[in-house]
């Protein structure tokens, strides 16, 4: 399997642990990522706030480069471009969609691209998030076959954040309100997944820079919810979510008098560990909240009994039956 790869600015340095671990995991799974040559920033959530056409042109340059590169390498195959960062994924797929929906916008964008000798035809790339590719193209079975150090005893809160499933500018690979693909992936790795109702709630995004109080409250809610469900760590798939929950955790503790010490890792880091890679090889050690104490739990003790979920009432003769739900697979 070969994909175009758009790392995005964060993965160069701030979230280099994500890049390192995803490359290591990809190698084990036989997935090839060909980085788009000379890509630029996708615009994040800032560019569009100030200038409309420049924002679309900025993101479109990446699409044009990726499509050209795909054409010159693998010919007739539909080109697939993978973004590991949720914001990049959203921006690229949104621009692709809007260029298709609005011919006027596409004409303006292509007029701008022409100044750099580029052109992009909307819809010529299939833009995907890394998690989508991992769980749907590689598949849980292939992943399970690579697991040699299962994450037994680890209680994980799977955190999807906003932009991976919302609002679905192109195809959707999971439920936008209550996704489960990361839950399932973590179970395949041998970890225990805790219920995490806030799994698609916002981490605060750029509010850490604009209104610290707003951001810290959003981060606090997520940490509290994970702690309430006794998670050993939160697993994420977005560099912004990782940064906010990790780097600002101490600030939350100071602001609210709490004492959270919940490590925040990328899902690819845990995949690597489950595949038997060393912590260093998957970038462990870059996090503010040290993940080692939590990781030490792996296989250390007998699996703790899951505390009875608070929401399900105890069975009694008088109890009313619960609504039937579609069966959840338990690997």
């Amino acid at each position: 399997m070969r994909y175009g790869y758009y790392p995005g600015c964060s993965l160069e340095r701030n979230a280099s642990a994500y890049h390192t671990s995803l490359m290591a995991v990809a190698e084990r799974l036989g997935v090839e990522f060909a980085e788009v040559d000379d890509w630029n920033c996708c615009g994040a959530t800032e560019f569009i706030a100030v200038n409309r056409l420049r924002a679309y042109a900025l993101a479109s340059r990446n699409l044009a480069l990726a499509a050209d590169q795909a054409r010159s390498t693998n010919g007739a195959d539909p080109a697939q471009l993978v973004a590991p960062c949720s914001a990049c994924f959203l921006n690229l797929s949104k621009v692709d969609r809007y260029l298709e929906d609005s011919p006027a916008l596409a004409a303006d964008v292509n007029a701008a691209l022409a100044a750099g000798g580029l052109h992009y035809e909307a819809g010529s790339l299939r833009i995907r998030h890394l998690l989508d590719v991992i769980v749907n193209d590689v598949g849980y079975e292939q992943i399970a076959a690579r697991v040699n150090s299962p994450l037994r005893g680890m209680r994980i809160a799977p955190y999807y954040g906003c932009l991976i499933v919302r609002p679905g500018f192109r195809e959707r690979f999971d439920d936008p309100e209550y996704p489960t693909s990361l839950d399932k992936l973590m179970r395949v790795l041998g970890a225990q997944v805790v219920d995490f109702p806030l799994k698609t709630h916002c981490c605060g995004g750029h509010m850490t820079q604009i209104s610290r109080d707003v951001a810290l409250e959003l981060i606090r809610r997520l940490l509290k919810n994970a702690a309430d469900y006794q998670a050993d760590m939160i697993v994420t798939l977005c560099p912004m979510c990782q940064l906010n929950l990790d780097a600002f955790q101490e600030s939350v503790n100071e602001q609210f008098g709490t004492n959270y010490r919940i490590p925040i890792l990328f899902f690819t880091q845990l995949m690597g560990l489950a595949f038997g890679l060393s912590p260093a090889a998957v970038g462990i050690g870059k996090e503010f909240i040290d993940a080692r104490p939590a990781l030490a739990k792996i296989g250390a003790a007998a699996e703790p009994a899951a505390p009875a979920p608070k929401r399900k009432p105890r069975r009694s003769d008088q109890g009313l039956p619960l609504p039937q739900m579609p069966e959840e697979e338990q690997p």
Binding site: Y178, R311, K312, P313, R314, S316, D317, Q318, G319, L320, L322, P323, M325
Partner: peptide
């Protein structure tokens, strides 16, 4: 997902004297 969320038709049965709770309005614990 949340035990004490009911549908309107469940509630109709709950308030019905011939229903599962004999017409008592109660939470899922019965």
């Amino acid at each position: 997902r949340l035990a004490n969320v009911f549908t309107s038709m469940e509630f109709e049965r709950m308030v019905n004297a011939a229903g599962p709770t004999a017409g008592r309005v109660v939470l899922r614990d019965g």
